[in-house]
Amino acid sequence: MLGRRSLFLLLPLFAGLAAVIGWPLLQTVWLSFTDAQLGDATGNFVGLANYAHAFRSHGFRHALGVTITFSLSTVAIEMVLGLLVGLLLDLPLRGRGILRAILIIPWALPTVINAMAWRVIYNPDFGALNALLTQTHIIGAYRSWLGDPGLALASIAGADIWKTFPFVALVTLAGLQNVPRELKEAAYIDGAGPWMRFKTVILPAIATPLMIAAVLRIIDTIKVFDIIWVMTRGGPANATKSLSIMVYEQAFSFGNAGYGAAIALLSVAISVVLIGGYMRATRAQTASA
């Protein structure tokens, strides 16, 4: 029943993908080799000029730096924090069911709503964060969380981490609950140290789901748009201008559709490189373990 003819089963999916992804993608690739302006059907073929322009441009290098900083730092913190909370939830403590249920909320919250909520919390004058931190004497004076270039990206990252570390925690917990209780207890009774137990019993169970979670997060953070758009639109002084915000600005505010397309494609290349590097690193790690 799985003869050659069964390949027709792929038809609906690939027809759909070709229509909504393939065809637009081809057009974008073509656009990236032209000087097309938004609203004009065609532009002149300019070869690799858009790409060359990007690599020479200070704006692109800056946006690249912002994107990679944001991606690596949020993913790293989310993974560590999520792993720790996942381990915590696996301990025999009362009330962990409640905590687990609460963790669902940030994860399910739409990104735009999360961004809006944190923008209000970070508000320099009437925001809750400044009020809380000054009233508990942690900081002396109100700060401009989203207006200070040294703080803005970190503040956005904070909002993103708050939303996403629960996802990692739940994934970790799921992996842990696949480990038979007897195995955990056996390792405990054998007198294996905490590190040994982690490495031999826990890590194998959570490695794969965590790796998938990390890949998904790297992809999402390289694409990051919504949260920055709602919170700062790339300011102050471009401190939060990621590649996606730059693509938007070039293509829609300036009308440089061709250049925008080139930068968008470069951001995909960066995703591929980062994920490739990450996979290689984790594979090497598991091989040596």
């Binding site: 999916l13 993908l17 909504v20 992804i21 065809w23 637009p24 993608l25 057009q27 974008t28 656009l31 938004l38 059907a41 992809i219 390289i222 694409k223 748009f225 996606s244 693509v247 938007y248 293509a251 559709a257 925008g260 397309a261 968008a264 494609l265 951001s267 995909v268 995703s271 591929v272 994920i275």
Partner: peptide, 19 residues
């Protein structure tokens, strides 16, 4: 198929708009 998840929506916005 799965790798297409890596493509940011911004990549498709202009062509899709015209379509």
């Amino acid at each position: 198929v799965v790798a297409t998840y890596m493509l940011p929506p911004l990549l498709f916005v202009v062509p899709l708009y015209h379509i």
